[in-house]
Design a protein around this nucleic acid. Structure first.
Lengths: 341, 341
DNA sequence: AATAGTATTGCAAACGTTTTCATAAATCTT
DNA sequence: AAGATTTATGAAAACGTTTGCAATACTATT
């Protein structure tokens, strides 16, 4: 059926089969209006018969766009990033772009390597998670004049165009919620903040808000946990079985919060009766656990979609005007928080 | 610091800056042993100064590999695929490849489009999830002679090289577990099996095993649920509040199983006291919920890593000998199953 | 029926590399 | 110290496209 010319089906093979010149074949793809319908039909038949597939690398060499966008994330294996990646991928796919994906495991030096690698493939743009990046990365982006953007975090003075949420506000909202409920003895469980501006912002603003509310959080009420339910559970147990009688736990993200819920239950404490727990993120599944997790919702899907749409528009436009989109946060009160005593 | 030649830093710019010919520059990258140390140093300095970044598209035009591998998944936004993608990405990255990722939402026609799109970018190989694909997809792969492999599912007679688990066995193991515990009234909740051979295999072999064990599962004990805790919960409630007095639920994957646990609890049934529940997959988090989910573990990370390693080896080898790897399944008994009454 | 357009096609250069071949310089033979 | 190797470099062709320009074949105008 498909005669496959030992794999070397290129535009000139098609031209030969259709008895026209390569130029005409090329034009049929790129400017069909300049080619007569009859010729077009001949060419399409030849394309069909030979199973020709366009070679974008070769096109690219004429200043055409590669049609790829690079996305560099800390990790793929994460409810929240998975959701962003999916939405971003769908959005750029809609515009004919393909996703080049790389992850760096929260290591900013590896992030640089990944960006470099993507640039070797001449991506039309590179999207990064968060606004904190190594100087080398910024220099590289500037030097190559590759369009770049930040996803997930928003600040009004960001260097890069960005689409995301205000993580400082997220930390504040979580703290305010606990404050409003009358909690004074509050523990914090956060991930390592190095190279993770999202967590950094959340933590510092939560702390600040609590302070302003007259609540101080000494060292022994803070704990660090990686992105893992099991380890967060351990961290919560440590905190809750310590000397301080905590009535609330503020967690850096929903996975940690989920672990904290199990940890509290494990200590024989009822949630929210004995201890209130709030997360940040509203991951898929946070609504489903029992009791439903109270959290500050960050609209991952919306962010991914918007980021994809804006970025492709940015890339294809001539003007290249900066954009900064702040996505609204939402306090989602479910079953893991209630007023203190 | 970096003078950036209006973005047109190519190999001849470097050559000019280092006062050598472009050939020598090229050689410095590809066959450094053929160029004198002194010259190499000059060239590296020029590269540094101009911020030159290799152009793989241009290399590719000389029969060099593109250095990219395409991965087409049903969806990224899925605990289980996210884990595979991460592991696969890391494994191929190790070998210098970059990941081109696309998703099709369980639509085999869209899968074809995605494969085609990846081939336009001349990926060095394309990995697909599962063994069931449209005829068009298979034809395209054969015609283009692009190395291809299947991830996640294993059968000994697969057309494509594959790394995965035997999903038939998974279904059987889950059914056997319930049978061994003495359950006779068993309900099934599975996702839509169209275009999803993993679910198909699991379902049919579970059904078959139950049958052999003398347990029949009439239509009204089967329910369909998409990949969503909330909807699985509803499906479980429907099943458990029906006329049949079910003592066990066999779920097509862990997300559904988790929903089923909540559904059972919602019906006032204790798990596993009143109803046993088993899932398939052992997703991240399945161990953490309360009670821990009994499941058939499919080692996603191992599969992803192995797939990446084997595929890159396959691609870079001359011989191209087929490979088929079956990853071991494991029955993980946690807290959601116990013997019938 | 001759002229001026217009629609369609082909030629050839260009894109940024790699690689074969040829050449020049350095080193080794004896 | 002359030839024989070996080492280091450069020139040019090739890869698969796109596109500006030139050429040809139509069509419309008078």
């Amino acid at each position: 059926m498909a005669p496959k010319q030992k794999g070397n089906v290129d535009i000139v093979a098609v031209a030969k089969a259709a008895k026209v010149s390569p130029s005409t074949v090329s034009r049929t793809f790129n400017h069909p209006d300049l080619v007569s319908p009859a010729t077009r039909k001949k060419i399409n038949r030849a394309v069909q018969k030979l199973g020709y597939v366009r070679n974008r690398a070769a096109q690219m060499m004429h200043g055409k766009r590669s049609g790829t966008i690079g996305l560099v994330v800390p990790t793929i294996n994460h409810a929240i990033f998975a959701e962003v990646i999916q939405a971003f991928s769908d959005a750029i796919d809609q515009e004919g772009f393909t996703l080049l994906l790389a992850s760096h495991g929260y290591d900013l030096d590896r992030e640089y390597e990944m960006v470099r690698k993507l640039m070797e493939h001449r991506v039309d743009g590179v999207a990064l998670i968060g606004l904190q990046h190594s100087a080398a990365t910024s220099r590289l982006i500037a030097q190559q004049e590759t369009p770049a953007m930040a996803i997930w975090n928003y600040t009004e003075d960001s260097e890069l165009p960005c689409v995301g949420a205000d993580n400082r506000l997220a930390g504040r909202m979580a703290a305010e919620h606990l404050l409003e409920l009358g909690h004074r003895d509050i523990g914090l469980i956060f991930p390592d903040t190095r190279g993770n501006d999202r967590a950094q912002y959340r933590l510092s603003s939560a702390l600040e808000t609590l302070q302003k509310g007259g609540v101080s959080v000494p060292e022994d009420r803070m704990s660090e946990a990686p992105y893992s339910v099991a380890q967060a559970k351990q961290a919560a147990i440590r905190l809750l079985s310590g000397p301080a009688r905590l009535t609330a736990l503020l967690c850096g993200n929903d996975v940690i919060a989920q672990g904290a819920v199990y940890g509290a239950q494990n200590c024989g404490l009822r949630v929210p009766g004995d201890v209130s727990i709030i997360g940040i993120g509203d991951f898929k599944g946070s609504a489903d656990i029992e009791p439903g997790l109270t959290t500050i919702r960050i609209p991952a899907e919306t962010i991914g979609t918007l980021a994809g749409q804006r970025f492709t528009a940015y890339i294809t436009s001539e003007t290249r005007e900066q954009f900064r989109l702040r996505c609204r946060l939402e306090r989602v009160v479910r079953g893991t928080t209630c007023s203190a005593a």
